[in-house]
Design a protein around this nucleic acid. Sequence first.
DNA 1: TGAAACGCGGACAGATTTGGTCGTATACTA
DNA 2: TAGTATACGACCAAATCTGTCCGCGTTTCA
Lengths: 152, 152
Amino acid sequence: MLNLTKKADYGLMALKYLAEHPETVAMSAKDIADAYGIPAQLLAKILQKLTKSGLLKSHAGMNGGYALARDAREISAYEVIHSIDGPFFITSCTKGTNGCELTPSCTIKEPLARVNETIAGVLRSISIYDLSDHEQTAGQSERSSPLVSLAR
Amino acid sequence: MLNLTKKADYGLMALKYLAEHPETVAMSAKDIADAYGIPAQLLAKILQKLTKSGLLKSHAGMNGGYALARDAREISAYEVIHSIDGPFFITSCTKGTNGCELTPSCTIKEPLARVNETIAGVLRSISIYDLSDHEQTAGQSERSSPLVSLAR
DNA sequence: TGAAACGCGGACAGATTTGGTCGTATACTA
DNA sequence: TAGTATACGACCAAATCTGTCCGCGTTTCA
């Protein structure tokens, strides 16, 4: 199906939300969850993962919560998805540490590995900032660089 | 996890196999399954789907089997995946016919829809022929066109 | 004309993944 | 020390995926 898990969606939404509220020092998992109507405890676990990956900073205790560890422009969708869902591979055989032993004749994964890398590149080129609504819709200044360039 | 299902893998492998044996009039599902060591009955159902989608031609009866309905260059990986796994969307909310009603605030899917379209474009640009081993590794004549070009 | 080889298609069971909850421990603040 | 928040593991339910079984229609060939 080639789709992200709901967890990754939630993670992206949460980071987007944080990016849109830069004035707030920290937002609790519950605040964000309520804003989007997603399960608070589930989101909490997702944010914990993102914290462990270094994308978020956490602060326990009263008035605690989460905040972006870096500028929204410096956090790519790829990092978020990778942190939550783990390394993704388009082919199911590339999963294990050892290639598909069962089907040594699976010669298909070599070409698809390039496709995989292309998709990863696309996701790497998207930042949380790109996802968020930044109202200053002036000229598309930093839109000059192509999102993808794939050479063989 | 953003990966293809095993069925899609199997389907691509089977088409690749057919593309590499153009001299054969028809190959039975069992033949292909044996060649790769994948479950024959499962592959049979996959090939049936591909037949219904018009990517394969089938022939029942003795010495029957499947053959590519078009030239391998004219069948894209996108078509194969789409036939087997159905329409894929990177975001889980874009799934239903109606957007995510539960979370009307899910403003994330709009930017990701473009990513989705990019990935689809990549897959559309890959043909079964690209996957197969075509021994005439002369000059990369038809490799001049870029696989992806994404403008905003 | 009948048997063998093959595609067609639904039903279904087992395995795996995902989504979500609960409980408890820990950290910080007032 | 009470209250609020993160941290983390165990656990369950639902959905999905993988694979099998079975009966049927079709074609070929002896």
